[in-house]
Each structure stands twice: as structure tokens, then as C-alpha cells.
């Protein structure tokens, strides 16, 4: 049967329903568990194999050796596409995705994330004679 105003009923009932939108900046939207947000680097686990650098589609990761078995990571968040391929590539699970998605900045240099290496372990004390 053909009749006009088919959606009128739907529109009218919507007046008495909760809004479908969220008051975003005031009500924070929770991301699902698998969400791929900002990458976190765990310096203690890194072995410097640089597989993440090799697989990164946008070359936004730089791992540099700063000392004996100590590595520093640099992320260009403006280039990162948040695919989390580095997290999958890492053999030691030194990289992980976080649920952090509010990454906008007004200055570009703030988008460079540097994860400094752990301080070197204290030198072993000289053996007591």
C-alpha cells in the first residue's frame, strides 16, 4: 500500500527517546579493547632488532641505540596511521597499543614522542678484597 509520511511515526517517537549522539568532550567515549591508539614503548624489553622500523608503513618509528643494550624510540605521531603493525612485528612485545586517541596538538613538534631509554644499571661495586 502506498502512503505518504511513512517515516512520520518514526520521527515522532524519536522525540521521546534518548539522543543517539554523545556529548563528547564532556562524556568520554570508551574505546573497545582492541582499539589501536597511541603506541607505548617499553624500553626495558627492546632488543634493538628494528623489525618495527622495517614494517612500519609510514616509517614513523626510529629506534636508536644509546648504550649497551639500551634503546630509545622516537615516534612521529603525525605520520603514524595507528595500524599497530609494529606491535604485531615486535618479537619481544616491547610495543603496545593504548586506548589513548585524543592526540590533537596545536604545535607540530609536540607530536614527536620520544621514549627515553632506561638509565644504565648502576656499575657493580668493585669486589671487596
Amino acid at each position: 500500500m502506498i502512503k505518504p509520511g511513512k517515516m512520520l511515526r518514526e520521527v515522532l517517537t524519536s522525540f521521546f527517546q534518548k539522543p543517539a549522539t554523545v556529548l563528547y568532550p564532556y562524556v568520554k567515549v570508551l574505546m573497545p579493547d582492541r582499539f589501536r591508539g597511541k603506541i607505548r614503548f617499553l624500553a626495558t624489553l627492546c632488543i634493538g632488532c628494528k623489525l618495527c622500523m622495517r614494517d612500519c608503513p609510514t616509517n614513523c618509528i626510529t629506534i636508536t641505540k644509546v648504550g649497551d643494550k639500551r634503546f630509545q624510540a622516537e615516534f612521529d605521531l603525525d605520520q603514524c596511521i595507528y595500524c599497530a603493525q609494529c606491535v604485531d612485528s615486535c618479537p619481544k612485545k616491547a610495543l603496545e597499543s593504548t586506548a589513548d586517541y585524543e592526540l590533537a596538538q596545536l604545535q607540530r613538534n609536540k607530536l614527536k614522542m620520544i621514549y627515553h631509554a632506561e638509565p644504565p644499571p648502576p656499575q657493580a661495586a668493585a669486589p671487596i678484597e
Partner: peptide, 19 residues
């Protein structure tokens, strides 16, 4: 459509570019 977008996000980790 938001319903299916949220499902995609829960399954894959993102609403678009599922990876």
C-alpha cells in the same frame, strides 16, 4: 549504521581501515 560501525570497531579495533 553506527551499530555496525561499533561492531566493526569491537571486532577489528577500528571503525574504518580495519587492519
Amino acid at each position: 549504521r553506527e551499530v555496525v560501525m561499533d561492531t566493526l570497531a569491537a571486532l577489528t579495533g577500528n571503525r574504518v581501515n580495519y587492519g
